[in-house]
């Protein structure tokens, strides 16, 4: 198990490094002149050249890569080209907002889809049909559209939730929850549709297995057969799908943050990409991939724990 864990961590480090490197070289390809981008079209050539030198862009790319990587390994992601603030701080400020949103949506997805999936698989009938139809539509509605409608109804019309902005958890847990409730719901809808149908499918698979019939032949109550044995065996499939959905939720959060005026990583990423603020873009990519890697390792550990064949080996 320890070896397994070390291998996963090693693979994660390699993944982050490969992505960071690819992104670095992609962003240092010749595009428009960064100096010109920062100073605007009216600046004279000398000022632009001076700006380039200031940013170190006149140095060879490999040298810059080495410096950046050395810094990154030590936790220094450089400074923003536009605001001169450290990238680490810019990302660090935005990360809690995005993580709150994505984690809340993940928890919501996990709970709701397991309940829906299990009920649909076990009860069958119209309930199952309803879930299937609703999930196709839920899957088809872009999450920012859900967000717009939710915000229109609950924040603008009814005024139950704040329409915009974020309250940190440490400041006021109640208002934190209120501030991320609508965005998290909007974000989670599609993921719920996906994970619930997968859970339903794997539950039906498991319930059709020979050992479930044998468990029932032993006169065990349905509750134990379904919730203890079947769910346990269906869990790995759902967890795998959930971990893929987590990555999708990070993507979705970028758009949702705009709808609800949350200044998270997504909002930072959008503006940094729009301006061409390379250090900030790089920093955001590294942090996002790092989050994905950490979550994947956690999921792998959980999967290993669920599967005796891995756990024992």
């Amino acid at each position: 198990m320890l070896l397994f864990l070390l291998r996963r961590i090693g693979a994660g480090v390699v993944l982050v490094w490969v992505i960071a490197t690819l992104t670095f070289f992609l962003t240092s390809l010749t595009g428009s002149d960064p100096g010109r981008r920062i100073l605007g079209p009216t600046a004279d050539l000398e000022a632009v050249a001076a700006k380039r030198a200031e940013l170190g862009l006149d140095r060879p790319v490999l040298e810059r890569y080495r410096d950046w990587l050395t810094g990154a390994v030590h936790g220094d992601l450089g400074v923003s080209w536009f605001t001169n603030e450290p990238v680490g701080r810019l990302v660090g400020d935005a990360l809690p907002v995005s993580l709150s949103l994505v984690l809340a949506a993940t928890v919501l997805t996990a709970v709701v889809s397991v309940v829906l999936g299990v009920v649909a698989a076990v009860r069958g009938g119209w309930l199952d049909g309803l879930l299937q139809s609703v999930s196709i539509v839920a899957f088809a509605v872009p999450n920012f559209l859900v967000g717009l409608v939710l915000s229109l109804v609950f924040a603008v019309q009814l005024g139950v939730f704040p329409a915009l902005g974020y309250t940190p958890l440490a400041q006021d847990p109640g208002r934190w929850l209120a501030s991320i409730a609508l965005p998290a719901i909007a974000l989670a809808i599609g993921a719920i549709a996906t994970v619930a149908t997968q859970t339903r499918g794997s539950m039906i698979d498991v319930l059709g297995q020979d050992y479930v019939r044998t468990l029932r032949s032993r006169g065990l109550p349905t509750r134990s057969v379904v919730l203890k044995h079947a769910l346990r065996n269906a869990a790995p499939t759902s967890l795998t799908v959930l971990s893929l959905q987590f990555i999708a939720l990070i993507s979705g959060a970028v758009v949702i943050e705009k709808v609800f005026g949350l200044s998270g990583l997504g909002e930072r990423a959008t503006s940094a990409a729009g301006q061409g603020d390379v250090p900030l873009v790089l920093g955001i990519v590294v942090v996002a991939v790092l989050v994905v890697v950490v979550v994947n390792i956690v999921v792998d550990i959980a999967l290993g724990w669920l599967n005796p064949k891995v756990r024992i080996a």
């Binding site: 992505i19 595009g31 061409g276």
Partner: peptide, 20 residues
């Protein structure tokens, strides 16, 4: 597996930032 670990929108942001 590498591509699947990437949040799509973030990648698209990087690419669009670079190439317009």
């Amino acid at each position: 597996s590498l591509l699947m670990a990437l949040p799509a929108i973030i990648v698209l942001l990087v690419v669009l930032a670079q190439f317009g």
